[in-house]
């Protein structure tokens, strides 16, 4: 339990300093970790109360990150044109310029300091192409059924296709919302 608190604190810190140069991030996190270890070594026991007190005195990871940016003269990474373009292109770029539009979105996503690697992986994998896939499927499905006579899948298949289609639309939309929120969390201030 107390170790979970420390891990969560250090994870939050790492997340808050993600726009700093990698070496500075590692250095700061290592120093804070040493500090926690030293502080706990002075406590009579390493229970939850001790850990909470140590973390309380260290302060909010977001404040430490702000201070690090200030002292290093690095402006806080702000979501700008690049981030807006990345989110839009990831979602519908593949429809406007097939495949290439999405790839440009991907490059913008990975070059931005605003998102963590985890955010970038989510943005890349859910779902490659964005809305391109459901868009193509939709047209493909209507094309195959344009002939006369009985056509198309049975009722059950139809239901499954509808669910799949809805998921293929919902997943990239949810990812876009997620990326937008993550970008604005860092930009808050």
């Amino acid at each position: 339990m107390s170790n979970d608190l420390i891990d969560r604190y250090l994870d939050d810190l790492r997340d808050d300093v993600r726009d700093l140069p990698k070496r500075r991030q590692d250095e700061l996190v290592a120093e804070i970790k040493d500090h926690i270890d030293s502080a706990l070594a002075e406590m009579p026991n390493r229970d939850e109360v001790s850990v909470r007190n140590v973390l309380e005195r260290l302060g909010d990871p977001a404040d430490i990150a702000d201070e690090a940016r200030d002292r290093m003269g690095i402006p806080r990474a702000k979501a700008g044109i690049r981030e807006i373009a990345a989110v839009i292109l990831l979602l519908i770029g593949g429809i406007v310029i097939p495949v290439l539009g999405w790839i440009i979105g991907l490059l913008l996503l990975w070059s931005s300091p605003v998102w963590t690697s985890r955010d970038k992986l989510i943005g890349s994998l859910i779902i490659p192409g964005g809305l391109m896939l459901p868009f193509e499927l939709f047209f493909f499905a209507s094309y195959t059924c344009s002939g006369s006579g009985p056509c198309g899948p049975s009722g059950l298949e139809q239901a499954l296709i509808t669910i799949g289609f809805a998921l293929a639309v919902a997943a990239p939309v949810v990812t876009s919302i997620y990326l937008t929120r993550r970008a604005s969390i860092l930009t808050r201030g």
Binding site: H35, G59, D63, I64, D70, R71, M72
Partner: peptide, 24 residues
């Protein structure tokens, strides 16, 4: 150093924010 500094300058200085200064 960090603990003594945070205590000397009042509780408003949280210990964690001293490390970026030391680094600089």
């Amino acid at each position: 150093l960090v603990r003594a500094l945070a205590e000397a300058t009042g509780m408003e200085t949280s210990e964690g924010t001293i490390y970026p200064l030391l680094s600089r």
